[in-house]
Design a protein around this nucleic acid. Structure first.
Lengths: 331, 331
DNA sequence: TTGTATGCGTTATCAG
DNA sequence: CTGATAACGCATACAA
């Protein structure tokens, strides 16, 4: 591939002039500029990114590390990031850690080596990518979950309150034994939703019975099994709060297998809205999180840091809201 | 951030020795190597990627440009790519073109500038990213749709046959007026599915009536409107073949609004399986595409080219299969 | 306004 | 086995 030298030679100018032309310096004679542009076109010249980044000591790229590309919650985040980044002239590369701490570490490491301008990290449960960021000058922002031991800007959702609201809603709808399926212990989003559920129980004057709580990975399969064990127990719950979208899939599958109907047989509220949620029969009640905004806000914070903004790490907490549909209506 | 020079100085060796140590050359005295490693750890040294890529004239990164991160078909492709690439020591960066030809061009251009090792492109409709690839030495593979005017390895799915099979299935189930909602004219996957539908009509001895065909973007909204116009026409279809997953969402929404039930009122088969398809009531009949394999095969082809494999551009065609469920059962 | 020359941080070549 | 040193391709300080 052609280099700047070849372009310069062909245009009969110096490499400096080529560089200046291509970088929009207005101190270039228009005639020379035209010759440069012509040479560029003829040679199909394309600047060498690594060389430029090396010289400039910066790369106009943001890395976004998420734990599951197939989860609509994360893809929505990515759109938020992308829109903001793009508008500011940054590209976004999406790295899928697949909820695997090693992969996460590895992607963060690659991002650091490639000297990306900044990193947005949606930490997997028992995170490890954070450590790498700790003693680094590369700006980063944690999304959805705080980064243990790594002080940095963080964008969270107050899902505790939302979980409480959902729980109270179930109680108000007339359900009497509320169960909860949440993520692994130690994962902040999982624990927070559980705590919210408990607070809701308390607010509704219901007993907090640990036999109505199950934990599993934030995946369909484990949640499906959890739902089955709950519903087949001697004193099954008559309503369920499910901690994320992927889990909801597993729970719904189990309900189907058991011939149990959401709403009339078992009240159901799940976290995360999805396009298909209201197409179900009955439509699924959800706690909608502002996923797009998480990404957009995170990207903006990151860009500010990249722009040398100083100051203490901030934590932004967005709120989620309940979208009641028929799956939490006993009638 | 520390450089190789500082590491060398601290370890009391030359930069060459540091480089050799870090790159696993076995020609380094173990004592020196130990000193190097110690210095690396102390300084938290991390090699500068751009510098290395510049020097090596290669970047161990594959770019995957897709048109919609929120579409499960593409995210499944990305998993296939990622698994294969990862195993071969390559990272994958996902670029979301958002079905926008300009963004696609822009991402391809960035990938080219960054000198990625290869590009996997799932072209948007009226593609434009392909032109860039044409006169480039960077290996690339087209996924899902061929790249006009750019001869290169291509991985396709024989959705024509699958569309035909689905159409015949609808006829065999007893539906009598089969409609089709497909993508924009000129988009190969859209045209191919339409052609398959027509072939199915013919095979079933049904008239080919163009008033039963609608086109829209491969998105929910347009497809929803198309379904409405079809179903509210004077002689509405009694079954629908829908060309992708996102469109199916729109169509289902319309059915709901119209109070029309899939299966008993209107037969329905849509392209692309999704986790939620069988949770619907009735469960959605689909044409399942081997999305993961598209990605995996594509990545393997790309890696072969990167490994200097010569030879004519190949075209691999995978097949899709019908998964009949209750939405195409009139009973 | 333009050109020359230097260095960004690595790796690889070539002597020692 | 190790160390100087020369590129890799570009952007910029400095000179002209």
């Amino acid at each position: 591939m052609a280099t700047i030298n070849e372009v310069a030679e062909r245009a009969g100018v110096s490499t400096a002039t080529v560089s200046r032309t291509l970088n929009g310096k207005d101190t270039v004679d228009s005639e020379l500029a035209a010759r440069v542009l012509a040479a560029v076109a003829e040679l199909d010249y394309r600047p060498n990114g690594p060389a430029r980044n090396l010289r400039r000591q910066e790369t106009p790229v943001l890395a976004l590390v998420i734990s599951d590309v197939e989860n609509p919650f994360f893809t929505a985040i990515s759109r938020g990031v992308e829109d903001v980044a793009h508008a500011a002239g940054y590209s976004v590369v999406l790295c899928n850690s697949d909820d695997d701490a090693d992969k996460e570490r590895s992607y963060v490491s690659v991002a650091l080596e490639e000297r990306v301008a900044g990193i947005l990290l949606s930490p997997t449960g028992h995170t490890s990518g954070g450590e790498l960021l700790n003693d680094t000058a590369t700006p980063f922002v944690a999304l959805d979950r705080p980064l243990p031991d790594a002080p940095g800007d963080t964008v969270l959702v107050d899902t505790g309150s939302a979980a409480r609201e959902a729980t109270e809603h179930l109680a108000a709808q007339g359900y009497r034994r509320l169960g909860c399926i949440t993520g692994p212990a130690g994962v902040p989003t999982a624990d927070e939703r559980l705590a919210g559920y408990r607070a809701g129980l308390r607010a509704a004057g219901m007993p907090d019975c640990s036999s109505l709580v199950r934990r599993s990975e934030f995946k369909a399969a484990g949640a499906g099994r959890a739902a089955r064990s709950l519903l087949e127990s001697t004193r099954p719950p008559d309503a369920l709060l499910v901690a994320n979208n992927a889990m909801a899939l597993g729970v719904l599958e189990t309900l189907r297998e058991l011939g149990v109907r959401a709403g009339s047989d078992v009240g159901l509220v799940a976290f995360d809205d999805a396009p298909w949620a209201r197409l179900l029969d009955p439509p699924l009640s959800v706690v909608a999180q502002p996923a797009y905004d998480i990404g957009a806000v995170g990207a903006r914070l990151l860009l500010n840091r990249i722009g040398n903004e100083r100051g203490e790490p901030s934590t932004t907490t967005l709120s989620a809201h309940l979208v009641p549909r028929a799956s939490s209506d006993p009638r």
